[in-house]
Design a protein around this nucleic acid. Structure first.
Length: 212
DNA sequence: GCCCAGGGGGCTC
DNA sequence: GAGCCCCATGGG
């Protein structure tokens, strides 16, 4: 696992994922990026900043329809406006204090996040890793496809099972999990689309240890 | 014109 | 608890 990471890093270099301006922006981005490319999310975040709307307080004040307009570049902007509303509404119960929310243990924090409308497994874990800075491995569609290509998964595994593959074989290091996941997405974009578009698959070079 | 992104909720059976 | 449908922009 570690070796594969080193090869990916050597091939692609650091990905500098989630350069967001603080944990709140990361949480907003985690909602906006659902099934949406990050470029569109950047446009939406720029719109929110320009409207001075990128705070929990302002997001609660702004009408949902207006919020939907600001995040229009993102796919499913109407549902995502509702999701952002649900998020900041929950934050209000913490006095808008993220440190207060993040003071929970990982399992507890996960449950709390999952109980928010619009936050599923991937979004919850993205927030725990990239916003709260706790060591959990984020599994997404790309990670699944790569693991399947490598024969390390068949497609029926639960989120927790795939996550255990990384948790059991890596030191629980936030920076490692952060960069590793980003690199897997980068690799996935290249070779693990639903229909492969490359002629020579780099998976062979990078993941040839057989251990994943 | 076609494919598909850094998903999740809600419904049905 | 699995299998579907819905949401509905923009880049390649």
């Amino acid at each position: 696992m570690e070796e594969v990471f080193q090869r990916l890093l050597a091939r692609y270099g650091p990905q500098a994922w989630w350069p967001g301006d603080g944990p709140f922006e990361v949480m907003v981005g985690a909602i906006l990026t659902q099934a949406t490319s990050w470029k569109n999310v950047e446009k939406a975040i720029a719109n929110l900043k320009e409207a001075s709307a990128l705070t929990a307080v302002r997001l609660r004040q702004i009408p949902e329809a207006e919020l939907a307009g600001l995040i229009h570049p993102c796919l499913y902007y109407n549902v995502k406006a509702r999701k952002l509303k649900a998020l900041v509404q929950r934050l209000e119960t913490y006095g808008d204090s993220l440190p207060s929310l993040f003071s929970r243990g990982i399992a507890d924090l996960r449950q709390e996040l999952l109980s928010i409308y619009g936050v599923g497994e991937e979004t919850a874990y993205s927030i725990i890793l990239y916003a709260a800075g706790k060591p959990v491995f984020v599994i997404d569609a790309y990670t699944r496809r790569i693991l399947e290509r490598l024969g390390l998964a068949q497609g029926k595994e639960s989120y927790a099972q795939l996550q255990a593959l990384f948790h059991d074989n890596l030191a629980p290091d936030v920076r490692l999990f952060n960069e590793y996941h980003a690199l897997l997405v980068r690799l996935g974009k290249e070779v693990c689309r639903p229909t492969p578009r490359c002629s020579v698959c780099p998976l062979r070079d990078i993941c040839s240890t057989g251990e994943g």
